[in-house]
């Protein structure tokens, strides 16, 4: 009886969560003020993180909250501030022809039908992953998949992140010199004091997330995004990279994650093993090494994407 009650209660909770998600998505798209739309999108991301928790995907929940909602939201807001106007009222729309509605309804029916026709129970690769966990060098299944079983995907994904940064830099106008920026910003001393307290804490959290990823939810992406959040805070408080660090030391920091991944992936081949085939004894350490470098680069890259400018290297650019 009690179990059934909980069951029903949880189902109601799920239903509520799902409806909230759909409403937030709709309001976010249709908001007259784009600022409001973005705030609603961030709220959508946070509710989605709850959905991931309900689906027993805590790693995804962390990544969603930090990257999906947090950093994407920050990127959207800073972009909005650079646009000529944030008002799009009423939202400029194409007239939606009947054909579009027919297409959407058909797609809904077809996709829904395909999903409902899947078997109610399916193991997927859960058992296969479980049986190989002992050979992966880590204890947390998601980390094992990300960094070992399907590490090659993750390597290419680091390349995608690097690509986004290179693209942003090749498109962005060069930054005004750093002193001009600082003059424009006046940050209250209280915020600065808070900032000084927060930064070490965030770095600590990032380090913890990185370390804990080996046996519990967490890992390089979640840690990297916390680091990025610290970077965003620093930028908001008017901190800028020193000129002498803004040249190749910065670029080295940005490629470090991808470079370390490639280096380790290729280095293990020396003994005749395959790409990314870590020797069992050192797998855990190698994964931690890759993740540490990746965390650093992810944090730096995301913060640089937020700043939206190539830091200038002083007078001689």
């Amino acid at each position: 009886m009690g179990a059934a009650m909980t069951e029903a209660g949880l189902f109601l909770l799920d239903l509520l969560l799902v409806l909230t998600l759909l409403c937030l998505a709709w309001w976010s798209l249709a908001a007259t003020d784009l600022f409001k739309g973005i705030v609603l999108f961030i709220a959508f991301g946070l509710v989605l993180a709850l959905a991931w928790v309900r689906l027993d995907a805590p790693d995804v929940a962390l990544a969603e909250a930090a990257i999906g909602a947090g950093l994407t939201g920050a990127l959207l807001l800073t972009t909005l501030s650079k646009l000529a106007s944030s008002i799009d009222n009423p939202p400029a729309k194409r007239s939606s022809p009947v054909l579009l509605w027919v297409l959407l309804v058909m797609l809904a029916a077809v996709l829904g039908y395909a999903i409902m026709s899947l078997p109610q129970q399916a193991q997927g690769l859960a058992d296969t992953v479980a049986s190989q966990m002992g050979n992966s060098g880590v204890e947390h299944p998601v980390t094992a998949v990300l960094l070992n079983f399907r590490g090659y995907d993750t390597l290419l994904e680091m390349a995608v992140l690097l690509l986004a940064l290179i693209a942003a830099w090749s498109l962005a106008p060069r930054a005004a010199t750093s002193c001009e920026m600082d003059e424009a910003l006046t940050v209250s001393p209280i915020v600065l004091a808070l900032f000084r307290m927060l930064i070490p804490l965030m770095i600590l959290v990032a380090a913890y997330l990185l370390w804990v990823g080996a046996h519990a939810p967490g890992g390089a992406f979640q840690a990297g995004s916390v680091l990025a959040a610290a970077g965003v805070l620093a930028l908001l408080c008017g901190k800028r990279l020193e000129g002498r660090l803004a040249g190749w030391p910065l670029r080295l920091g940005l490629v470090l994650g991808t470079a370390m991944f490639v280096a380790v992936a290729a280095a293990v081949m020396v003994g005749g093993a395959h790409l990314l085939q870590y020797p069992l004894a050192s797998a855990g350490k190698l994964i931690l090494l890759i993740e540490a470098a990746a965390t650093f680069s992810i944090g730096l890259t995301l913060a640089m994407l937020f700043s939206g400018q190539r830091p200038s290297r002083g007078p001689a650019s």
Binding site: A57, L118, P119, G124, A126, P141, L146, A168, F221
Partner: peptide, 28 residues
Amino acid sequence: ARRSGDSPDPVPHAMVITGIVVAVSATA
């Protein structure tokens, strides 16, 4: 991936984390 009983299948979780990073790159 939740259809697999007690412990969910971790492979789609890893895929989605990859997907989230790709999505933020594309958005940027």
